[in-house]
């Protein structure tokens, strides 16, 4: 699903945020991406959604070199990836329902079909009863679950999450992670960047460890 071939990312001509990255993530896999803050986890995810372009090497997603995408194709590429952000990136001027519906609205999905999908996604994260609420009325954990519903409403083949449990207590974090495992179980490729090592160790999935922009460990699930 994802292949990094000798990928490097250099900022300002001096600082190597990422260097010599070589790894593959197979379709249907669930992978953790870990390392200290500043190790390059977010940069790596930004490369995959083509917010940044690599300074060196190639990134293949679903067999396509994403650096070759024309800038008009990028939106259509991004629609096939669900992204969960640490700060959830919800729009605070609209309801939970409309936040989750946003990717479908962007695709121009017919409203009735969209409404069915939005409700299914909200039901999946256990927030169907809050669809009319505004994000500000929700707790941090609930906001993050709205973010996840928005990422999966589109049924993407690839789900990326950047520190999805960053500000949550252990119980909520475990709940969020088990949601990701549920999506992985139905075939979605999932990549979660997190520095919550205790939680990651408990969950037993393949783990890529980054240190100063280099891949220092690739540990299979035990």
């Amino acid at each position: 699903m994802i292949a990094f071939e000798h990928v490097g990312k250099r900022y300002g001509g001096r600082f190597d945020a990422l260097a010599h990255l070589n790894f593959r993530v197979e379709r249907g896999e669930m992978v953790f991406l870990t390392g200290h803050s500043g190790a390059g986890k977010s940069s790596l995810l930004r490369l995959i959604i083509r917010l940044e372009r690599p300074s060196r090497g190639r990134i293949l997603v679903a067999g396509h070199d994403i650096d070759r995408l024309h800038h008009t194709q990028v939106p259509f590429y991004r629609r096939q990836i669900g992204v969960v952000f640490q700060d959830h990136q919800l729009l605070f001027d609209r309801s939970i329902y409309h936040n989750v519906a946003l990717p479908l609205e962007i695709q121009g999905m017919e409203p009735r079909e969209a409404s069915r999908r939005v409700r299914a996604a909200l039901d999946k994260v256990g927030l169907l009863h809050r669809e009319r609420a505004l994000p500000i009325e929700l707790s941090g954990g609930e906001q993050q679950r709205v973010g996840i519903a928005r990422a999966v409403v589109n049924k993407p083949a690839l789900l990326l999450a950047d520190e999805p449990t960053g500000n949550l207590d252990p119980q909520l974090s475990a709940d969020i992670m088990s949601l990701f495992e549920d999506f992985n179980r139905i075939g979605t490729t999932v990549m979660v960047a997190s520095h919550d090592l205790a939680l990651i160790a408990r969950l037993r999935h393949r783990t890529l460890r980054l240190h100063e922009g280099r891949l220092v460990a690739d540990e299979e699930a035990v």
Binding site: A62, G108, K155, P156
Partner: peptide, 28 residues
């Protein structure tokens, strides 16, 4: 994403593919 097409058929309609008429309607 052609290889994703197989994936799509395996898991059913994954992304919403609108017909030309549907695209015009959604544009409107």
């Amino acid at each position: 994403m052609s290889s994703q097409g197989q994936e799509r058929s395996r898991r059913g309609a994954r992304t919403h593919r609108a017909s030309a008429g549907g695209r015009w309607r959604s544009w409107g």
